[in-house]
């Protein structure tokens, strides 16, 4: 058989076919609201974020200090053993300079790009990274391996959420304010 010899299905519609009502449609706005139990590990993690601290769990079998904390070790498949506070500093493992929002809409020309990164937290086992944002940094100055520190919300504004950390900023501010060069990223 050769695909070329068949009349293939799949009728392509243009956006204008919808706009001009050439094709009938029905719309649905689902109401998908959820309440997720935090569970033990993430519950404590969030409580400690409210206190301005990051807490990990330790597995005594593989000796990993794990972030985010979890009550079981997925490698050893046994309960983890103890809580341990780690630093609120870390190292950028990888990062992006995002010009789109979560729904693929574009950020406006006046909106700064979002700077998501995987940050390996000091005190946790190497390679235990978490997703968070970078801030107070020129996108062109971000480098993998860069040392960063959490910038916390004011304690009275903290609610016990991952967003109690506003972002991570470089430990040492960039030495000189460069003239705005050609945008690389």
């Amino acid at each position: 058989m050769e695909l070329e010899k068949y009349k293939l299905g799949g009728t392509h519609l243009k956006s204008s076919d919808f706009e001009k009502g050439k094709v009938l449609t029905t719309a649905w706005q689902p109401n998908l609201a959820y309440t997720w139990d935090n569970g033990v590990a993430i519950g404590r993690y969030l409580d400690e974020l409210k206190n301005g601290r990051i807490i990990a769990r330790v597995c005594h079998e593989c000796h990993r200090i794990m972030l985010p904390p979890r009550m079981f070790c997925e490698l050893c498949f046994r309960p983890t053993d103890e809580w341990m506070y780690v630093q609120d500093t870390g190292v950028v493992s990888t990062f992006s300079v995002a010009r789109v929002n979560w729904d693929a809409s574009r950020r406006g020309p006046k909106e700064p790009p979002l700077l998501p990164a995987v940050i390996e937290i000091d005190g946790a086992t190497k390679g235990m990274g978490i997703l968070h944002m970078l801030g107070e940094v020129d996108p062109d100055d971000i480098k993998a391996g860069m040392k960063v520190r959490a910038v916390w919300k004011k304690s009275e504004d903290r609610t016990g959420a991952i967003t109690d950390i506003l972002y991570f900023k470089p430990l040492r501010a960039a030495a000189s304010k460069k003239a705005p060069a050609r945008r690389k990223r």
Partner: peptide, 16 residues
């Protein structure tokens, strides 16, 4: 015990 509230903000347009 604590919990986290959020929604899944999608909507749909179906052809017939």
């Amino acid at each position: 015990p604590t919990h986290w509230d959020a929604d899944i903000p999608v909507n749909y347009v179906y052809t017939y």
